[in-house]
Every structure is written in structure tokens, then in C-alpha cells.
Design a protein around this nucleic acid. Structure first.
Lengths: 171, 171
DNA sequence: ACGCCAGTTGAGACTGAGTCGCAATCGCAT
DNA sequence: ATGCGATTGCGACTCAGTCTCAACTGGCGT
């Protein structure tokens, strides 16, 4: 459970470019690996403020940048505004199903999609460096609630959606 | 070429909910369908400011909301900040390849990916309402330039990337 | 163990994108 | 032409994230 592995990666990352493992960076790292898989910058700020020590917002963001750069943490654009961060297990990769109702984030991995992506890239001579793939909608838990609540517009949208399974191409 | 079709959709959309086709909405619509496939809100603001009439930022955003809601225009989160809009040809749908170097946006459509998505949703009992799928990297045109410029770090990243075609899972 | 100094921090000003409230104005059905 | 609900522009506001800079500190060299 102890994130020895990640800490070492981070340590080495810092060392390699003459950066320091300050108490703030350490505290942030610990908080992050204490429990949370997904989190937002301000969430961390509050959490650290109340629990441990006060760390300025600037430092949170700066440290998060380092963690992202070192590959330990991923930065995702989920939802309407701002970023969301998530721990990255080395080598692993996944995409997201995001519930518009409860905000739940479901991770999924579909190798076949990945290889089709590769194919698309080849087709266009495109060298992919990263990708972002999210589906937004209603999760299993929220579906009963939603369909019963909004019988009108939403229901027709929902039924149309279930026929084609994608209706409002957000991207 | 004249976007009669879209104008009518918009007109009907407004009518249906007792909204008005004001000169500002009309100007925005025209500008949008004059040429541009992809654009940003501020781009429109500037364009309209200089060319035709002055339209406030608030109105730009408000009108864009209507256009998105009416299904004529799509709102995409591309790049680091803010939104990007694009005209939507009815029924069509596509995803994006975005070049980190030149900003070029390549549209692609891969039916097989779409149906795999549907499958994933089914697996999780998830009702998809929209999706967003983007690959970031280097486009064909920029590849020679980039690899020659940055022989070191970038090159190793690039070669690693070409082996697996995705390296830094951004989402 | 100590000192040094590049790297780091916090505070708060700043930015950019987008939203809001409200008084003045306009579209359009009658 | 009239009336009134919809719409506009303005500017103030929010929110997330960045920047500046003086004060502070980790950890290498001795």
C-alpha cells in the first residue's frame, strides 16, 4: 500500500533536474496517495489546509505540474470547467464514463478501441502523444431516478439516445 | 452553399420557444456560416467587431448557447483553455486529431470505435448522451520539423510513442 | 555541523474565459 | 402603430489558474 515506488519515481524525477523535495511537495504527495484516485486542485488545497499544513494555491498547482510531468499523475479535462487529476498506475491506461447526474467517474479500458485509434493515426500520418476519451451520460444507478423524474424532454432524449447511444456529439 | 437549411432549423428552434431572431443573432449566424468550420467565441467577437456591428461578449456567448442547444453548432473542449465551436452537419459526427505544433484540427470518423463505445456503455449499464474523443500529437506536416528540431528528449518520446502510439494518457 | 545559494514558498495581484443583473431597447403578434 | 416580453450592452463579478517577488529552506560541499 505504501507508495514507495511512486515516491521514488518522484524523488528521482526531482533529483534529475536539480529540484528539491520540500516539505510542501512531500505533504501534497502524501495526501494524494493517502486515499484519492481522482481529485481536483482545490479539493487538495482545502484538505491540506484543514488537516495538515497550509500550502498556498500556487504551490499546489506548481507541484501538481511536477507530478504530471513526472508521469505519476494524470491531468484530465472532465466536466465543464477546470482540471481533474488522477493517479496513474504505471503502464496502465483507461478512459472515462462520466455521469451527468451524480458526477461518478467510471474508468474503462477497451483494447480494441485503442488499436483502432492507432489505425486512425496511421491513416493520417499522425503521431499521437496523448489522448482523451470520455463519454458523458447517466450511470446505471441514476437511470431509474432520472427517467422517472423527467418524463418529458429528457425521456425523449434518453430514448433517442439509447437507440443510437450517442446524440449530442460534444466533440 | 447558402445555409438555408440551418437558418430554418434555427428559426424554428427560436420560434418553438418564443424567442426572437434579432439582428445580433442573425449577424452572428451569418458570420459563422460565412466560412468557418471551427472557431472560438472571442474570434467571433473580434471578427464581428471589426467587420460588421458591435455585439457584446455576453450576447456572443448567449447566442452560441442557443446554437449549441439547437444542435446546429457543437461545443468542444479542445486545447488547454476555453471552448471551441464547430458547425455540425446534421447527422454527421466526428472526433478530432489535434496537432500540438500547429494547432491544426483533423476530423475523423471511425464507425468501429463508435460501436465499441456502445458496447462499453452496455457493459456498464451507462446511458451515453454525448462523447468527446481527441488525440493530441504531431500531424504529418509537422513531424519532420519536430523530430529534426528536438533530437533529444522529444525524439525518444516520439519513437516510444510510435511504438505504442499513445504514451501520456491525458485522460 | 555549517553555510551558502539555487530552488522554493506564500500572498496577493493578475489574467482570461465565461456569467450575471439590470436598465434601456427591440421584435413581432395583434 | 402599440405593447410587452424577449433581448441587448455594459460593467461588475466569478472561477480557475498563473505570475511576481521578497523571504525562506533543502541539501551539497566542506
Amino acid at each position: 500500500m505504501k507508495p514507495h515506488r511512486e515516491l521514488n519515481i518522484f524523488r528521482k524525477y526531482l533529483e534529475k533536474r536539480g529540484l528539491k523535495l520540500t516539505s510542501e511537495r512531500r505533504a501534497l504527495f502524501d495526501e494524494l496517495f493517502a486515499r484519492h484516485e481522482h481529485f481536483e486542485a482545490d479539493e487538495l488545497l482545502v484538505r491540506l489546509r484543514t488537516k495538515h499544513k497550509k500550502i498556498s494555491r500556487a504551490t499546489i498547482y506548481r507541484t501538481l505540474d511536477l507530478l504530471v510531468d513526472s508521469g505519476i499523475v494524470g491531468r484530465v479535462r472532465i466536466g465543464e470547467s477546470g482540471y481533474r487529476y488522477e493517479r496513474l498506475r504505471a503502464g496502465e491506461h483507461h478512459d472515462h464514463l462520466i455521469c451527468n447526474e451524480c458526477g461518478r467517474v467510471i474508468e474503462f479500458f477497451e483494447p480494441a478501441i485503442e488499436s483502432l485509434q492507432d489505425e486512425v493515426c496511421e491513416r493520417y500520418g499522425f503521431l499521437a502523444l496523448s489522448h482523451s476519451h470520455q463519454l458523458r451520460g447517466i450511470c446505471r444507478q441514476c437511470r431509474p431516478r432520472v427517467t422517472s423524474r423527467e418524463a418529458g424532454v429528457a425521456a425523449s432524449a434518453a430514448s433517442a439516445a439509447s437507440a443510437r447511444l450517442r446524440i449530442l456529439p460534444t466533440a
